[in-house]
Every structure is written in C-alpha cells, then in structure tokens.
C-alpha cells in the first residue's frame, strides 16, 4: 500500500495553502517595510526629522 503513506489528504492541501499564504504575506511585509524605510530615510531633513508635510502646523497629536 504505497499510496496509503503519501501525504495527499485534503488536510495536507489546507495545510500547504496556509503555509504558502503565510510565507507570501511575510515576504510582502518585509518588502513593504523595506520600501517604507527607503521613503522615510530619503525624505528626512538635515536633522533627521521627518518632512513637515506629514506633520503640518496645527495638527492635533
């Protein structure tokens, strides 16, 4: 019964879809954080502060 030990149960498909989805989500998250870092670092002023546009005068923090 070679077929009996092959992991092709429907349960394995669900597990695979979950692992693949989680892997892709984490990859996308890493890419997004990297991109955000590039944007934030390259747009800061000489003192390392974020640009004024994101914190306008009169903003209520």
């Amino acid at each position: 019964m070679v077929g009996a030990i092959r992991p092709d149960h429907e349960l394995h498909r669900r597990r695979w879809s979950r692992n693949l989805g989680l892997g892709l989500s984490l990859l996308a998250f890493v890419v997004l954080v990297f991109g955000l870092t590039i944007v934030k670092v390259s747009r800061q002023d000489a003192h390392g502060n974020p640009p004024a546009a994101t914190q306008p005068a009169g903003a209520t923090p």
């Binding site: 349960l11 498909r13 669900r14 597990r15 879809s17 979950r18 989805g21 989680l22």
Partner: peptide, 15 residues
C-alpha cells in the same frame, strides 16, 4: 474530528 485541529486553509483566515 479533523476540523478544528488547526488545519484551516489560508482562505479560512482571510474569511
């Protein structure tokens, strides 16, 4: 008995 053992598909978490 299979269900509810942590073997949900990715789509279930999206739901």
């Amino acid at each position: 008995a299979y269900d509810g053992t942590g073997d949900a598909g990715f789509g279930d978490f999206v739901q």
